[in-house]
Amino acid sequence: MSTLTLSKAINSGLRRAMDDDPKVVLLGEDIGKLGGVFRVTDGLQKDFGAHRVIDTPLAEAGIIGTAVGLAYRGYRPVCEIQFDGFIYPGFDQIVSQVAKLHYRTRGAVKMPITIRVPFGGGIGAVEHHSESPEAYFAHTAGLRVISCSNPQDAHLMIRQAIACDDPVLFFEPKRRYWTKADVDESLALDSFPMGSARIAAAGTDATLVAYGPLVQTALDAATAAADEGISLEVIDLRSLSPIDFDTVEASVRRTGRLVVTHEAQQSFGIGAEIAASITERCFYHLEAAPERVTGFDVPYPPAKLEEHYLPDLDRILDAVDRVMGRPNSLSGQGL
């Protein structure tokens, strides 16, 4: 057991995957000597060589496109996209090539590519450095999309992603990179299935679903709600495609209430998918309409406004009040 930040936990997961399999190669901008702008790949080029930790030209389509070729040749490429907002130049390669080649070749060619994406806001960054583009990829058949929320999961999930024979988008909550926790690096890779959600806090009154950076916010909300006598069950999705609906459904059947939160815009998002699917699955167990607490449907605003844009503890608790039928910001009853 060691105490690691989330970024170091990913680093140790990458190191372990590279130790275990010589076909694992890393590609990205500034990932070699610099160790990545967030230092997630720190020290790996020194230890594994420049042929396995490849500083690429500054070209995202090129990074993903060459990863396809490497995968074709039997490698397991792990691509780093420097920031969420820089993934779009590689979008065509991801959705038209990476996602479809196993299908088009009727299984003759596998695409075990991991695409690491630091995502989300909350660090006061400049434009295009705080986005949450995960729904684009969750919408695409052929891709798996996962997001870690804590160091222990981060360590195991990056290794699971690399070991997976399917392409995986791995969304890293950049504002939680410096969160520290105990990490057991000896845990088996299948300690939990890659697509499974986790009950981060057990509760009985309402189910609060989150992933990535907002899991901690949701846990804080649960603590605050407990002070008011409300018991929240917090689910850390971990996987956004596929979504572990069974775990969410079982929880909602117990609580009768659902709140989903994410930083990404609301419309056509992960929250919409969960609200719709859970409504289909257990409509008669719902005591209230599901609520979504998300970013607004605007471009990510300038950093000085992000505290208003990002779902926070108050907005989450306000939604909890709505599903509980308690006085809330919209009830006209005052708070």
Binding site: H51, G62, G65, V68, D92
Partner: peptide, 23 residues
């Protein structure tokens, strides 16, 4: 390889495959 209808998308695949040969 299979035909690629998205123009030029297969070109970086050829480069990546060649990088795999080098390794």
């Amino acid at each position: 390889h299979l035909y690629t209808l998205v123009l030029a998308a297969q070109v970086p695949h050829a480069v990546g495959y060649a990088m795999g040969i080098q390794r």
